[in-house]
Write a protein that binds this DNA or RNA. Structure first.
Length: 592
RNA sequence: GGCCCCGUGGUGUAGUGGUCUAACAUGCCGCCCUGUCACGGCGGAGAUCGAGGGUUCAAAUCCCUUCGGGGUCGCCA
């Protein structure tokens, strides 16, 4: 670089280097021009340091510094100097020192950026995404990307130490039924045929177990063509793991160890193990979610028995048709405004709740729109069942369990958010286990695998496979952190006979199963070890570690909600020549 | 596909039918300034209010359509 060789990084400088000559490279974060003295905050990946230019020290460098603007790229030769006590900046890690600039080279000029290159900016995300290279230049985004690097490095260390092998699996694979919508890639060589991008490396990693690799992991890109959310991108990264000769307990223990290691080494947080275990059934009944946020209590309380025999027809008819009446107790919120209560009714309606009753235990007695239907004995029973005391608010819903649990579970979360009951510094891990094997798809009128169709049922439940599949539970497990599912997996089926019975149970004909998964079934015939696996959502894990509320902040180049890349303007059109090569004719539906 | 929120100088906002010839902050440009660190002082430029259509004597403001972004339900084994 014109004879200047970089010797240090800005953030690494400290008072021990007093008097030393250094050469720094970086971007101008800010320039403060005092006329006869110019301060430049020089920023690189490591941090920031103040450089001072004075005409008495270096006239030429000073003149050049006058022309410098924000985000110019500079190389600076200067001397590390301790600052006078009254000019020390305690808010800056390098605030005890500054660089006395002797030589300045402008490596490149820069236009004024459309937003500030600093933390905590308040700017439309559209702009951040369009100028992602500037957004990524902001210290907090740099930290997020550094964290991402650190965490994947630690994962590789951990698995290497535990005798795992990192093995790549194909990106161009065969489209398989079930699950999310596939991204498709046309095959030029095979006109009319398509590859799919993997939703996960599921089958390949099981084949690797058949192949005898015993312990596999991969930091694998996965693709799902579904609608986006704050925690869902069309392409995302999984830490994918598969292990032979392992049972569920060993699996959970090893993963707890791995997670604890990551949190300790990456962000210095001690995670205590083992994690709490909760059955799917308990999770749904107590928290109305298969990924409950356990940073606060407020459990769902079943008050069906307490309200039985009341004059309230809504409850009575619901109970007689197999429904339940459940409540959450919001402590100390009996003074909730009527208007907010009305809003809550609307809130639960988005989750299928048809109504919401309330009981406010105010100092002037219980205020409620339903107690007029209740005898004093029933009111007492409700109070006992919920342990409600003066000041509490009960929110009550009646419906079939599959409606009342999720809706009340969402309300539980919402009330906790509104009343600031969630300690954001807390990390509460748990395992949810014993998921149902199947759930009934009312549209398709058949059973579908809840996890996926390679999941092993619990041994004691296999007998229900043909007669009562709804009762079967699977050897599946999810790791949950603060209400977010960060990982999930299962012990797999490794016997062809059982796998074929499962296919049959979810309505796969033998021909269909053979066409789609024949190679897996055939592989099972050649000595398949018992095995199981798990996959973690790397982006979600990083989001939580970084304390962000969207995975877009930990993905360098994420897509918008409409699955576009605002910087690269992808997706885009292709030439007719390209389409012809692929034997593709477009038939784009235009909106009226 | 449904519902909700947002779109006004570079950026973030104010403005909810006429006095808007669009305000404020910050940024930008110029001049001054030797200890600032969100430096300071003075001056200046900069927006036809996302786009299109309509209502009206009059639209940033009301109506319709549309585009873009975000949240969410469905969807995501």
């Amino acid at each position: 670089m014109l004879g200047l060789k970089r010797t240090h990084s800005c953030g690494d400088l400290n008072s021990k280097l007093d008097g030393q000559e250094v050469v720094l490279c970086g971007w101008v974060s800010r320039r403060r021009d005092h006329g006869g003295l110019i301060f430049v905050d020089l920023r690189d990946r490591s941090g920031m340091v103040q450089v001072v230019f004075s005409p008495e020290v270096a006239e030429t460098a000073f003149r050049k510094a006058e022309t410098v603007r924000n985000e110019y790229v500079l190389a600076i030769r200067g001397t590390v100097k301790l600052r006078d006590k009254d000019t020390v900046n305690a808010n800056m890690p390098t605030g005890e020192i500054e660089i006395s600039g002797q030589e300045l080279r402008i490596l490149n000029a820069a236009k004024t950026p459309p937003f500030y290159i600093q933390d905590d900016i308040d700017v439309d995300e559209t702009l951040r995404l369009k100028y992602r290279y500037l957004d990524l230049r902001r210290p907090e985004m740099q930290r997020n990307m550094i964290l991402r690097h650190r965490v994947t490095k630690l994962m590789r260390d951990f698995f290497d130490r535990n005798n795992f092998m990192e093995i790549e699996t194909p990106i161009l694979i065969k489209s398989t039924p079930e699950g999310a919508r596939d991204y498709l890639v046309p095959s030029r060589v095979n006109p009319g045929k398509f590859f799919a991008l993997p939703q996960s490396p599921q089958i390949y990693k099981q084949i690797l177990m058949v192949a005898g690799f015993e312990r596999y992991f991969q930091i694998a890109r996965c693709f799902r063509d579904e609608d986006l959310r704050a925690d869902r991108q069309p392409e995302f990264t999984q830490l994918d793991i598969e292990i032979s000769f392992i049972d569920r307990e060993e699996m959970l223990t090893m993963m707890e160890e791995m997670i604890a290691y990551l949190f300790k080494e990456a962000i210095g947080v001690e995670v205590s193990t083992p994690f709490m275990r909760l059955s799917y059934e308990d999770a749904m009944n107590k928290y109305g979610s298969d990924k409950p946020d356990l940073r606060f209590d407020m459990e769902l309380i079943d008050i069906s028995d307490a309200v039985k025999g009341s004059e309230f027809k809504v409850f009575e008819s619901m109970l007689s048709s197999g429904g339940r009446v459940k409540a959450i107790k919001v402590p100390g919120y009996s003074h909730i405004p009527r208007k907010e209560l009305d809003g809550l009714v609307e809130y639960v309606s988005t989750y299928g709740g048809k109504g919401l009753a309330w009981m406010c235990y105010t100092p002037d007695g219980i205020k409620s729109q339903i107690t007029k239907f209740f005898s004093g004995a029933i009111v007492d029973k409700i109070t006992v069942a919920t342990n409600a005391v003066e000041g509490d608010l009960l929110l009550i819903m009646a419906d079939q369990p599959e409606v009342v649990n999720p809706a009340l579970g969402q309300l539980r979360l919402e009330m906790a958010r509104r009343l600031n009951m969630i300690d954001s510094a807390k990390l509460t891990f748990l395992w949810v286990v014993d998921f149902p094997m199947f759930e009934y798809d009312t549209e398709e009128k058949r059973w579908v695998a809840m996890h996926h169709m390679f999941t092993s049922p619990r041994d004691e439940d296999v007998e229900f496979l043909e007669n009562n599949p709804g009762q079967m539970r699977a050897k599946a497990y999810d790791m949950v952190l603060n209400g977010t599912e960060i990982g999930g997996g299962s012990i797999r089926i490794y016997q062809r006979e059982l796998q074929e019975r499962i296919f049959k149970a979810i309505g796969f004909s033998t021909e269909e199963a053979t066409e789609k998964f024949g190679y897996l079934l055939e592989a099972f015939d050649y000595g398949t070890p018992p095995h199981g696996g798990i996959a973690f959502g790397l982006d979600r894990l990083l989001m939580l570690m970084a304390g962000r509320s969207s995975i877009r902040d930990v993905i360098p180049f994420p897509k918008t909600q409409s699955a576009t890349d605002l910087m690269a303007q992808a997706p885009g059109s292709v030439s007719s020549r390209q389409l012809k090569d692929l034997s593709i004719k477009l038939d784009v539906l235009t909106k009226k």
